[in-house]
Design a protein around this nucleic acid. Sequence first.
RNA 1: GAGGCAUUAGCUCAGUUGGUUUAGAGCACUACCUUGACAGGGUAGGGGUCACUGGUUCGAGUCCAGUAUGCCUCACCA
Length: 878
Amino acid sequence: MQLSDSYNPSDFEEKWYAHWENKGYFHSEPDEREAFSVVIPPPNVTGVLHMGHMLNNTIQDILVRKARLDGKNACWVPGTDHASIATEAKVVRLLREKGIKKSDLTREEFLAHAWEWKDKYGGIILQQLKKLGASADWERTAFTMDEVRSDGVTKVFVDLYNKGKLYRKLRMVNWDPEAKTVLSNEEVLYKDEHSKLYYIKYQIEDSDEYLEVATKRPETIMGDTAVAVNPKDERYQHLKGKRVLVPLIGRSVPIIFDDYVDIEFGTGALKVTPAHDPNDYEIGQRHDLEVIATINEDGTLNEKAQLHIGEDRFKARKLVSKDLEEAGLMLKIEDYQSSIGRSERTNAVVEPMLSLQWYVDMPSIAKPALDAVMSDTVQFFPEKFKNTYRHWMENIRDWCISRQLWWGHRIPAWFYNDEVFVAESVEEALEQAKEKLNNPNLTLDDLKQDEDVLDTWFSSWLWPITVFDGFNSKEEIDYYYPTSVLVTGWDIIFLWVARMIMAGYEWKNELPFKHVYFTGMVRDQKRRKMSKSLGNSPDALKLIEEFGADGVRFGMLSCSPAGGDLLFDDKLCLQGKNFCNKMWNATKLIKGWEIDESLTTPIGNFEAAQWFESRKNQVLVEVQANMSEYRLSEALITIYSFIWNDFFSSFLEYIKPEYQKPIDKYSVEKAISFYSEICTILHPFMPFITEELWHVLQERKEGEDCMMSRYPKVGDMDQSLLADFDMLKDATAKIRDVRNKNQLKPKDPLKVQAKESDETLKFLERRGAVDLLKKMAFLESFELTNDDPEDTVSFISGKSAFHVFVEKEINIEEELEKAKADLKHQEGFVTGVEKKLSNERFVNNAPAAVVEKEHKKLADGKARIEQLKTLIAKLSNL
RNA sequence: GAGGCAUUAGCUCAGUUGGUUUAGAGCACUACCUUGACAGGGUAGGGGUCACUGGUUCGAGUCCAGUAUGCCUCACCA
């Protein structure tokens, strides 16, 4: 394959993705290999790709591709969820634009529209994931509302009901007046917002006295059915048995005494509106108060409010406030900060309402799930989320799962008058009804199915089971379950992660995944969460267009510690793209070399290859350690600097022939085989460029693709060789520095002598490394000496002095100063070590290896000091 | 109100169960380098008393306690 002149990702990214897909590389079937399975956190079917998805799916792809390269049977199941509220809202809006009102449609008609929309636009996000390189098994694409997944939902609902872990109850709920549905606690987001505290006078019945009450919500006073004070409150003892009149409407309500009331807060008197406040409702229950609901499902006041009927609750607040002022009943209005709950999906202020809903008894299923995480059976990365998880699980509350919507799984419960029958089908429900009611004449028409659907999460929590058809067949679920790792954001730890673990234990009696990797939240440079409304989120597809998928993947990953925030910056993608460009050019260099088979391999090249092999093994160990702890960012940086520094800057420079001279065959073959291994090592992170270069580097057989290659195994590391090459690198850098500081040309040949020592003697024996030092530092000679030559610029490498003969006036002052500073540093170092070693308790208590290391540090330090002192003496005499 | 997490170079972060030549990386910065794979580049360099105060230990960026600052989660008083 030919290489074009410059790196241009759009030239080949689509080509390779199509190639992989056509070859069926993404598809997995159970076999005898070890399985590595991952289920995608199903994105909302209405969604489009944003930065969070990019990060999350890049990470999954890295893990899956790595597992594949390790020879595992990798299976990444993609799919979407039906996003009840969001999708229904979207479809309602689209219909409205066409002039169709939802209320004019039957349920069936509406659902037909919704499905039409879903089939046409749903799942765009999955197509977008392909641009990112996601190696998901598209043949397995699942949807929470398809047949298999729906079937699981029904089975689970019926099962929980039969086990007595699911029930229907009248309760104060979180109502979303915009979506006109109830929400679970987890779908309500609380934030401090500015509001006002209104101080209102309630006249005491048959008296001129007033009782002052503070409230945030004057528009609810028409629903008041009592005013409460604390029984210990001295101020109100005389009001026992008295009643007050609700302002504006004049209803007479009792003054009640309840411990709940805080004497310190406000006026110490609380208006009680049982229909519209959870705490008031409980007080109402205790005191047997009337419940007067004054607010409609859509947040407007109803006729029970008597005033401002039909007005929205916020407008009504202003109107009632004005009424009160006009009536002289408003004492004062204070600014006030308080926590306001809003719907996660619609952002509407949640209205507490009394409503009959279905609930799952969570405490009854939570324990195994809590234990699994606390014992690390299910392991969290990072670990700190165990705390959050435990806290929630130990205080878990029942889960409200019904929703007043049409788009979703309809609740499998049928009513006959007040009797309810829960079954997998209406026929079964009918059988139950006939038996229970002892009425064989009942027909299907007599039963009326619950109108509501289930919370979307009630299908998502089964995802790791249902994507493998785990409620119906054994083959796949036994092979792929439990899945290997779940990659998701910590923001849905309760909404999704905890519930999946509970479902896993409830129905599979087993964990759903072994590891959970919590990604960070993608934020902008000002640490703001990226959001549509702020407009601070870059267009994901445009980014890919600009930097290439590999560049974007690099950018996302190079700054994403697990669980921490990710401060996204375009520049990181640019760095990724530049890295690709560098790899491209290095390939051009290698492919441009002319091979002369008659040339013998220089010993330097030979040793360089041996060194690189050892260095590679070091890196592999490091990468493996990082990957196994999900330190992906570090793994990538390790690989990045290995490629750039060790392979390009060192190895290729070591073996590079002189300009326009040919190279020996061995060196090129080594370069190509190393580069191929590098492609495999980097492939999980940057799949496209590595596949492209893999094929450019050498002709490959059909099916011999980088994506399906094998990850290199860790081999031996020659520590002595590595040490010699460290000296080579260090000495080269320092000689170059001498050139820089003395304005010597990079290629003026220099003479260098090193003081004879055990390490320099050893280095000299490494003939190839010596050759390379001469080559890299442009030396005309390098030899050992026992003298301390004059007229040289000197430095210390390791513990040995190196002398560079510069044919130039030396700035003695500067050299002396530098040497003295270095000496001071070294002396401080040695003093520290000596102190340690003179401490008997250290020598006696520390492990032998540590003590020995300290001895070596001391000896090396002393050797350096000696060299420096000699150098200083020499300079001082000049 | 309860709990959690953080504080390391100008910025963003590593520092893997306390011991690897008295703290690392990327970006940013400085100097020099441009007809040679690559200026989307090369070569080298400067920059940190690891928030503060005590303690444990032979040894602390790493463990403990307290202080300060910041962030987050949960539960909430109208």
